[in-house]
Design a protein around this nucleic acid. Structure first.
Lengths: 259, 259
DNA sequence: ATATAAATCTGATGTGCATCAAAAAACCTT
DNA sequence: AAGGTTTTTTGATGCACATCAGATTTATAT
């Protein structure tokens, strides 16, 4: 199937094709690099043609050779449990790096699949390592990215072992909201790239429970939902429900009227 | 506090005080470094005096400056949830690195506390980074360690979102067993450095549930327990219960007589 | 358009584990 | 060794969420 399709369709190979001009550079690998260094990084990056919804970036077990930065769209990581069930371990939005957990194996430990039409930058890992030899800033940026992922994982472990269904979904939504905001989108209105089923799988809940929590949140006027479109109506209460202050310690206004 | 204390007390500053002679070097940071490189690494490492049970290596929020390799004993990582509850995120055995998730913050995101008398090697992170500039092998070893931790975290997420109480405890025990074995200890008989409470906290279970599973495992003659002493009687069945093949894909003898 | 499949939602029922309570054992302290 | 504290174990009860079942909506195909 992945032969030579899609030649010359309206995917602009000229535009946004360099890190320097990419709007995501301030969130992505190039952060804290100067122009010249970015240019060097740019040279080893291949822009792949867009993945269609459902297509794989790589499969669990494939030879590890590249890491990927999401440019547009979204990716889910998942593994198979030994009883054949899918377990989603992560969702990736634009500017986020995919595949870093394969570094110390020969093969990717999880699969990566496009949730919608998705473009990525492909970064051959061996060349990235070479380049990192020369660029201390790049080196520490890679470490920072991995360390942040470690922290996010611990947060996820907390969610899975201590939070109830409502808190999980609230955390999920506010977390997405924060990430969209940082990427220049509205933190209040966005489209979920994943299904309820995938949300449940990720959060350790049954689909039905996710659905029920969504309706409960709507009744409480925390959010408004229309299919995959989500509108956050009461960010304060939703954040409070989510619990943990997550990222930057916001100053917390105590005007939550929970009843 | 860290002045010039501990001169000549019976903690042997001469023995095991260098990476080259340390029995853990094949598991720890020096792996894949040659003798000269190990020597360089050795120079930046400080051996701290032993921590007593309950003492902290660092607190959540402390300024991040060092990572630590456990030399003997064991360390737990934990964070406080916003409702003041402790959440254990990791247990560290000898040769394992503690504190890597603080790299991209100014401060440690979790606390680290000794579960028993514990000695560690202190590695100032800035100096490690400097050294990594020169030593490509060290660089990739650091990446490998972090990437492995990422993978372990995903496994933990799977455990928390898909496995039941018995599977969790079985996974915990076989995982510990594997790690003890790799360190040269018996994989069948070992002492748990943590309490039932801490096991439950880590596994997302109530203490009572952990206790009950332990007795059930004893009744099924999977293990024998005496306080913190654990004896694994039927590794095959225990591993099968644990589910996921975890590390190396062992060849699996199908002689499990589950009833 | 209509047909068919997939996803989402809603309700009814069941269960695995948390919680509560209290005994038993292990661990300190003096 | 006695006393107190903490940890571990065992039993009884309750509940949050899973599971099952079916209705409804949305997506995809023809």
């Amino acid at each position: 199937m992945p032969k030579g399709q899609l030649k010359g369709i309206c995917f602009h190979p000229s535009k946004e094709t360099k890190c320097v001009t990419c709007s995501l550079s301030s969130l992505c690998l190039p952060i804290s690099l100067n122009f010249e260094d970015i240019d060097q990084l740019d040279k080893i990056i291949k822009r792949r043609q867009p993945l269609k919804k459902g297509e794989h970036l790589f499969h669990q077990g494939d030879r590890f050779d590249c890491v990927y930065a999401v440019r547009s769209g979204s990716i889910k990581n998942y593994a198979m449990t030994n009883d054949g069930e899918e377990q989603i371990t992560n969702f990736h939005l634009p500017s986020e790096l995919v595949g870093m957990d394969g570094i110390d194996c020969d093969t990717y430990p999880v699969s990566a699949k496009a949730l919608e039409t998705t473009t990525v930058c492909e970064i051959p890992f061996s060349r990235l390592e070479e380049l990192a030899k020369e660029l201390p800033e790049l080196r520490s940026q890679i470490l920072r990215i991995m360390s942040r992922e470690l922290r996010d994982d611990k947060q996820m472990m907390m969610l899975l072992s201590k939070k109830n269904a409502e808190q999980r979904v609230a955390t999920f939504l506010t977390n997405l909201s924060t990430r969209f905001k940082r990427r220049g989108y509205s933190p209040y209105t966005f489209r979920l790239p994943m299904s309820r089923n995938e949300i449940g799988n990720y959060l350790g809940l049954a689909v039905e429970t996710v659905s029920r929590v969504f309706t409960r949140f709507q009744n409480n006027e925390l959010i408004a939902v229309n299919g995959k479109e989500v509108h956050i109506l009461n960010m304060d209460d939703l954040s409070e429900l989510a619990g943990l202050p997550e990222q930057e310690p916001r100053h917390i206004e105590v005007n939550a009227s929970t009843g």
